[in-house]
Lab assay of single mutants.
Amino acid sequence: LQAFIKTLTGKTFTVEMEPSDTIENLKAKIQDKEGIPPDQQRLIFAGKQLEDGRTLSDYNIQKESTLHLVL
């Protein structure tokens, strides 16, 4: 599935991932794409901060969901 990552500066980019991917995997993909170390990334979806060990499906993240990236 493709999801949108929106930063506080208003920049939006897309990442490809599977519902079974962990938040940790997602942070690694963001690092590959944007060069931001995972330990500096905080991802917010539906008002909740996402925990590394959980999966996208745990948070009911669907295709074309928008996640907010806070540094």
Rank of each mutant, 00 (worst) to 15 (best):
71 L>D: 06
29 K>C: 04
30 I>D: 00
40 Q>I: 10
30 I>W: 01
35 G>E: 02
66 T>I: 15
58 D>H: 12
32 D>T: 11
10 G>N: 05
18 E>V: 11
39 D>L: 08
52 D>K: 03
46 A>K: 15
33 K>Y: 09
11 K>E: 08
1 L>N: 06
48 K>W: 07
4 F>P: 02
48 K>C: 07
15 V>L: 11
44 I>G: 02
68 H>R: 06
45 F>R: 02
9 T>D: 14
12 T>G: 07
65 S>Q: 10
23 I>V: 13
45 F>M: 09
24 E>Y: 14
61 I>Q: 04
23 I>Y: 01
8 L>K: 11
16 E>H: 10
1 L>Q: 06
67 L>D: 01
16 E>N: 11
29 K>I: 09
54 R>M: 12
42 R>Q: 12
24 E>M: 13
43 L>M: 02
10 G>K: 03
52 D>Y: 04
61 I>N: 04
24 E>Q: 11
14 T>I: 13
48 K>I: 14
53 G>I: 06
53 G>E: 10
36 I>Q: 02
53 G>C: 07
60 N>F: 07
57 S>W: 08
59 Y>V: 04
9 T>C: 13
1 L>D: 04
6 K>E: 10
2 Q>Y: 13
42 R>F: 12
9 T>S: 14
47 G>I: 02
1 L>S: 08
63 K>D: 15
65 S>F: 15
52 D>R: 03
48 K>R: 12
51 E>G: 04
53 G>Y: 10
40 Q>K: 11
62 Q>M: 12
19 P>W: 13
53 G>D: 11
49 Q>N: 11
2 Q>V: 15
34 E>K: 08
25 N>F: 12
34 E>A: 13
25 N>C: 09
17 M>L: 13
52 D>M: 04
34 E>V: 14
47 G>K: 03
29 K>Y: 08
53 G>V: 06
9 T>E: 11
6 K>Y: 10
65 S>I: 14
23 I>T: 04
42 R>T: 15
38 P>L: 13
12 T>E: 08
35 G>S: 04
56 L>R: 00
27 K>A: 00
68 H>P: 02
53 G>P: 06
35 G>L: 03
63 K>W: 10
7 T>Q: 05
59 Y>R: 01
56 L>A: 03
17 M>K: 00
23 I>F: 02
12 T>K: 06
9 T>H: 13
49 Q>I: 15
34 E>M: 15
33 K>V: 13
10 G>D: 04
60 N>S: 08
45 F>P: 00
36 I>S: 05
49 Q>R: 09
50 L>H: 01
70 V>S: 08
22 T>F: 05
31 Q>K: 08
57 S>R: 10
7 T>H: 07
16 E>F: 13
29 K>W: 06
28 A>G: 08
63 K>R: 11
27 K>V: 01
56 L>F: 08
23 I>E: 00
47 G>E: 04
56 L>E: 01
14 T>N: 05
65 S>G: 07
54 R>Q: 09
13 F>T: 02
40 Q>C: 08
